[in-house]
């Protein structure tokens, strides 16, 4: 977007070609779409009819707000520092994340490990499947048609748009989550982190490294 084209200064977003991006419906916008009004109307009706309760909706909101990529970072840092945990994680990821109190009752988690030879990156080309219990709600770009359409056929170009350049001898493996599995990338532990504690390591692991669009940078590069 060009600089002279800013209409909403704080909340301005490029719309990608399919207008797939979330429009910037901020609470302070004065123009509300039909669908925003519809959402409010249905919420009121569903509560009045007892289909859902206001408490249930509030609890679901709080639960979602409580899930951040820090959940995933804990799992990654433990996998880096505890070989027995790492083994459990790749054998049964649902059970391994449950050790941190992370419950994934309806989806099957699969952890995939980045190595010297393989770099994993996750997408859902059909919708927005994402390990929400570990990373929270997916970012706008993950749901965009731009990412979903391109990462399966030009993953290296897409990774470069995230600043990630991988050598040719590394296999780029794209996971298209088309069914009941949700994928968590276990990024490579960077050099120069030998003496760091699990807590210190967690802080290095960002959301995007667990989707696989970036790699974990050593602390000196931060």
């Amino acid at each position: 977007m060009s600089d002279h084209d800013h209409h909403h200064h704080d909340h301005d977003h490029d719309h990608d070609h399919g207008h797939d991006h979330a429009h910037p419906f901020q609470d302070d916008d004065k123009v509300h779409s039909y669908y925003q009004i519809l959402g409010q109307a249905m919420k009121e009706l569903l509560i009045e009819k007892g289909v859902v309760t206001a408490d249930e909706v509030r609890a679901a909101l709080e639960r979602r707000d409580g899930i951040t990529p820090a959940n995933g970072s804990k799992v990654v840092a433990r996998a880096w520092t505890d070989p027995a945990y790492r083994e459990r994680l790749f054998k049964d990821a649902n059970a391994a994340v449950a050790e941190f109190g992370i419950d994934m009752p309806t989806t099957h988690l699969v952890a995939v490990e980045n190595t010297e030879d393989v770099h994993n990156v996750v997408v859902c080309t059909l919708c927005s499947c994402y390990p929400r219990d570990l990373l929270g709600l997916p970012p706008a770009w993950y749901k965009s048609k731009a990412y979903r359409s391109r990462v399966v056929h030009e993953p290296r170009a897409v990774l470069e748009e995230f600043g990630t350049a991988l050598p040719d001898d590394v296999e780029v493996r794209v996971h298209d989550s088309t069914a009941d599995m949700r994928y968590l990338v276990i990024p490579r532990r960077p050099a120069g982190t030998h003496g760091m504690s699990e807590e210190q390591l967690r802080a290095l692991v960002s959301r995007d490294t667990m989707i696989g669009v970036t790699t974990v940078q050593p602390p000196s590069a931060k």
Partner: peptide, 13 residues
């Protein structure tokens, strides 16, 4: 496709 010959896509089918 112009990347590495080993590059792959995995799907659950």
């Amino acid at each position: 496709y112009s990347g590495s010959a080993r590059d792959s896509v995995e799907l659950d089918l």
